[in-house]
Lab assay of single mutants.
Amino acid sequence: SKWSPSQVVDWMKGLDDCLQQYIKNFEREKISGDQLLRITHQELEDLGVSRIGHQELILEAVD
């Protein structure tokens, strides 16, 4: 995926409302499409996504 960080942010805006709070962290870390495809629970935790349910929603959406 050749998504830029801004495309990742646009994609996140289409996800569940409960995930919108994390967008600024993804933006700050400039998460690209390639990074998103390989993202782990630990990396999500580092991005402030501490709730497992929220991590799962992001990982499922990526899949």
Results as ranks from 00 to 15, higher is better:
residue 1 S to L: 10
residue 1 S to G: 10
residue 2 K to I: 12
residue 2 K to M: 11
residue 2 K to S: 14
residue 3 W to R: 05
residue 3 W to K: 06
residue 3 W to C: 03
residue 3 W to M: 15
residue 4 S to W: 00
residue 4 S to M: 08
residue 4 S to P: 06
residue 5 P to W: 12
residue 5 P to L: 05
residue 5 P to C: 15
residue 5 P to Y: 14
residue 6 S to N: 15
residue 6 S to W: 08
residue 6 S to L: 11
residue 7 Q to H: 08
residue 8 V to E: 03
residue 8 V to K: 01
residue 8 V to T: 05
residue 8 V to Q: 00
residue 8 V to A: 02
residue 9 V to A: 12
residue 10 D to H: 09
residue 10 D to M: 10
residue 10 D to N: 12
residue 10 D to A: 10
residue 11 W to E: 05
residue 11 W to F: 07
residue 11 W to G: 04
residue 12 M to K: 02
residue 12 M to R: 00
residue 14 G to C: 07
residue 14 G to N: 15
residue 14 G to T: 15
residue 15 L to A: 04
residue 16 D to M: 04
residue 16 D to N: 07
residue 16 D to R: 04
residue 17 D to G: 11
residue 17 D to S: 13
residue 18 C to G: 09
residue 18 C to M: 06
residue 18 C to H: 05
residue 19 L to C: 08
residue 19 L to W: 00
residue 19 L to T: 05
residue 20 Q to S: 10
residue 20 Q to R: 09
residue 20 Q to K: 10
residue 21 Q to N: 06
residue 21 Q to D: 12
residue 21 Q to M: 11
residue 21 Q to I: 12
residue 22 Y to H: 05
residue 22 Y to N: 03
residue 25 N to F: 12
residue 26 F to T: 02
residue 26 F to V: 06
residue 27 E to K: 10
residue 27 E to F: 06
residue 27 E to V: 08
residue 27 E to G: 05
residue 28 R to T: 13
residue 29 E to G: 13
residue 29 E to P: 02
residue 30 K to N: 12
residue 30 K to F: 07
residue 31 I to N: 03
residue 31 I to G: 01
residue 31 I to K: 01
residue 32 S to D: 12
residue 32 S to H: 07
residue 33 G to K: 06
residue 34 D to Y: 11
residue 34 D to N: 12
residue 34 D to G: 11
residue 34 D to F: 08
residue 34 D to L: 11
residue 35 Q to F: 07
residue 35 Q to D: 10
residue 35 Q to W: 05
residue 36 L to R: 02
residue 36 L to K: 02
residue 37 L to I: 10
residue 37 L to W: 07
residue 37 L to V: 12
residue 37 L to P: 06
residue 38 R to C: 09
residue 38 R to G: 11
residue 38 R to A: 14
residue 39 I to V: 09
residue 39 I to M: 14
residue 39 I to D: 05
residue 40 T to P: 02
residue 41 H to P: 14
residue 41 H to T: 14
residue 41 H to G: 12
residue 41 H to C: 10
residue 42 Q to N: 09
residue 42 Q to H: 09
residue 42 Q to W: 02
residue 42 Q to L: 07
residue 42 Q to A: 12
residue 43 E to S: 10
residue 44 L to F: 03
residue 44 L to G: 02
residue 44 L to H: 01
residue 44 L to Q: 00
residue 44 L to W: 00
residue 45 E to I: 12
residue 45 E to G: 11
residue 45 E to S: 14
residue 46 D to M: 13
residue 47 L to P: 03
residue 47 L to H: 02
residue 49 V to F: 01
residue 49 V to A: 02
residue 49 V to D: 02
residue 50 S to Q: 12
residue 50 S to L: 12
residue 50 S to V: 11
residue 50 S to F: 10
residue 52 I to D: 11
residue 52 I to F: 12
residue 52 I to W: 10
residue 52 I to K: 15
residue 52 I to Y: 12
residue 52 I to S: 13
residue 52 I to T: 15
residue 52 I to Q: 12
residue 53 G to D: 15
residue 53 G to S: 15
residue 54 H to G: 01
residue 54 H to W: 00
residue 55 Q to E: 00
residue 55 Q to S: 05
residue 56 E to R: 14
residue 56 E to I: 11
residue 56 E to F: 07
residue 56 E to S: 10
residue 56 E to M: 10
residue 57 L to M: 15
residue 57 L to S: 08
residue 57 L to A: 11
residue 57 L to P: 02
residue 58 I to W: 03
residue 58 I to F: 13
residue 58 I to D: 03
residue 58 I to P: 04
residue 59 L to R: 07
residue 59 L to W: 03
residue 59 L to F: 07
residue 59 L to M: 13
residue 59 L to P: 04
residue 60 E to R: 12
residue 60 E to G: 12
residue 60 E to S: 14
residue 60 E to N: 14
residue 62 V to H: 00
residue 62 V to N: 02
residue 63 D to K: 13
residue 63 D to A: 14
